[in-house]
Design a protein around this nucleic acid. Structure first.
Lengths: 142, 142
DNA sequence: CGGCATCCCCCAGGATACTG
DNA sequence: CAGTATCCTGGGGGATGCCG
């Protein structure tokens, strides 16, 4: 009862889920996981630093996503009991492998950004042209 | 008006979105994009074949995701005007690059499946232990 | 500083039914 | 076979507020 909406695809561990695709997706999904791993992979990083280095993330989602990643053994949370407390997140080895894969993805994104934008423009203009056709099936427009 | 809920993060093209992270995510997000690309990369594949090769996908989401991928220039849709019609989807070059990255991800998932499960179990049991502590603050349980 | 708790909204996506 | 259209729900995730 006490726990609800822990978010970030936490879910205990339901039925047979042997599919590696879903496996990865479940760990990465959520708008922020990748960016957090990317940031933490550079150097161990503090909560507030993360918050500032990831524009648009809310405190809530930062916390939730961090917990999720920690739970999956992708991040390590280290608390320095100073006053006020200091918390540092660092990536584990398995996360670092993931990080490498992410970099590949980012690379892809940058190389194909233009092509994608163009493809979309083309697709959309085609769609519009087709729609225009329908409006005058045969004969007088009016 | 006529168009609503086209789904799969279609969105026209809002403000400055130069972040490659979101770029990739927007193209991949949705539960099915990756699996579709994975399937279509093996060989050009028909609508119904896709439907059967991806367990759990609905007709609706298959169509929606296919349209989205086609729009982004990741898939090519080819129609053979036979009766009944035959439609084949094949991946483009840029999608094939993505595919390679996905394979890396899948590989990672398989290698780390065990570690992740273990990490979760450890994390969860710790959390439970901590919770148990709270219930008997100091002294007699009851 | 580094969180957790609560409220609430939105839309990805499932179920179902109809077409060319 | 290959879609399209409509309805409806779950939960991801933003906003805000309180705490050690």
């Amino acid at each position: 009862m006490s726990q609800r909406n822990t978010g970030v695809t936490t879910e205990a561990g339901s039925e047979a889920d042997a599919c590696p695709v879903r496996e990865v997706l479940d760990r990465i999904s959520g708008k922020w996981s990748i960016q957090i791993i990317l940031a933490a992979a550079e150097k161990p990083i503090r909560f507030t630093e993360l918050e500032r280095s990831i524009p648009g993330i809310s405190r809530r989602m930062l916390t939730l996503t961090l917990r999720s990643l920690e739970r999956d053994g992708l991040l390590v949370r280290t608390v320095y009991p100073t006053v006020p407390a200091k918390v540092v997140y660092s990536v584990t080895d398995s996360a670092r492998e993931l990080h490498d894969a992410f970099v590949t993805l980012m690379d892809w994104a940058e190389r194909n950004r233009g092509a994608i934008t163009a493809a979309r423009a083309a697709y959309d203009s085609d769609a519009l042209a087709a729609a225009a056709q329908e409006e005058e099936p045969v004969g007088s427009p009016r």
